[in-house]
Design a protein around this nucleic acid. Sequence first.
DNA 1: CCGCGCGATTGACGTAGATCAATTTACAAT
DNA 2: ATTGTAAATTGATCTACGTCAATCGCGCGG
Lengths: 246, 246
Amino acid sequence: MSRPSSSADLSLSAIKTACSNCNLRELCLPFGLSDQEVARVDELINVRKRVKRTEHLYRAGSEFEYIYAIRSGFFKTYVLLEDGRDQVTGFQMAGELLGLDGISTESHSCNAVALEDSEVCFIPFARLEQVSREVKTLQHHFHQVMSREIVRDHGVMLLLGTMRAEERLATFLLNLSQRFTARGFSPTEFNLRMTREEIGSYLGLKLETVSRALSRFQDERLISVQQKHIRILNIPGLKSLLDNRK
Amino acid sequence: MSRPSSSADLSLSAIKTACSNCNLRELCLPFGLSDQEVARVDELINVRKRVKRTEHLYRAGSEFEYIYAIRSGFFKTYVLLEDGRDQVTGFQMAGELLGLDGISTESHSCNAVALEDSEVCFIPFARLEQVSREVKTLQHHFHQVMSREIVRDHGVMLLLGTMRAEERLATFLLNLSQRFTARGFSPTEFNLRMTREEIGSYLGLKLETVSRALSRFQDERLISVQQKHIRILNIPGLKSLLDNRK
DNA sequence: CCGCGCGATTGACGTAGATCAATTTACAAT
DNA sequence: ATTGTAAATTGATCTACGTCAATCGCGCGG
């Protein structure tokens, strides 16, 4: 509906939403807001939609109109080079925002695709700006979210520029663990939503290298891997792969 | 004064500033604002300071209070790993903003150091937020600036994750060329402000690799290099290094 | 003008990860 | 259950870039 673009037709039934009774409140846009202020955010989120696995939420070049908040599910964002090479720029889970890349040129610069069936809140950006002119805490928090994305990107640049394969993968696993923890899931046991190839694309490695590194971690009893199921057996051990180097 | 921190004492005389008569207006924060609106921005920039070569503007961990606009000069930002490895996350020139990383945690997450004697406008962030609650165009433009940084970072991730040494360097040179052009300088002739090692750190390469690639470009008559002086002889040739791959 | 030192260049060699290829495994459709 | 397909694992080899090392050369201070 809202964007009859090249992206797959996202959904079906728009779901009535409310941040007020969303259990992701503390991870998402309304973080740190008073009840009254959350009510202001509520009024600007009027649509929630389902996005099925493999469907795109937006594509590079498509018009920017919304910021998206992941209600449930899992996404990846990626950029493409003309020759077909691509780079996964991030994996996003519940409570995280998508689409910030679109603000700069009014059109998206990357692609966002669901890695599992998901639900997404559509936040009309013009209205978000309007409300954040009125609600100081919302304004500040939104700036923090954007800044956090910049800081995260710098971390990825550090990873891509200086780390070896095993360090990259350990960093990746520890990051997932920490984010699952923040969402109330086990820090040590989870299912990967992405393929080895997608992990590799994110980490600047080939899928074979990812697979070999996972196997080596398993040999060293740091983790156990069975396809997409990961169990972290030795968090300090994984961490020690990072700080000892050089 | 403002931050009696670990950073070198930046300066000397604060200089009276005014965006209104700054020739970088169109590249900097006031871009796209009416005269009246620029006047509002003027009132929040009360300090301009000199930062000498090798001096830090801020360091990771230092308190965040200002966004900085480069009036003149050249900076690099970098992040550090405990073991001493570092990654240059960007090179910034006149009209560009520094310090956006600090918003997320109220303290800076990277380091910013001048690569040549520079002048910097200090923009108290709390006041910037205040004024941008009142000036819609300023608010929107600031969001665009932050978003542009995210998009830029994604481009660097693509470079670090998928490109080969010569492609990275060609991309780097073309990017510098384009930014110098936007500032009224020659697209084809400029002095590098950074060492081979700093270029390498930014591009995820060792300094020897940077040096060799530059020499190869010179052999192929794409550029001429003499120490820090670069002359680009064949822009299409450099570009063609990028799109043909694979 | 001279010498010192950092930055840059260039060469020889080593290696982490890419590439190519062959199975194996999981899961979805029938 | 059976077959088809995509994902994952593992091995053998190749290579782009890193590492180590020897100059070179420019700019700066005395």
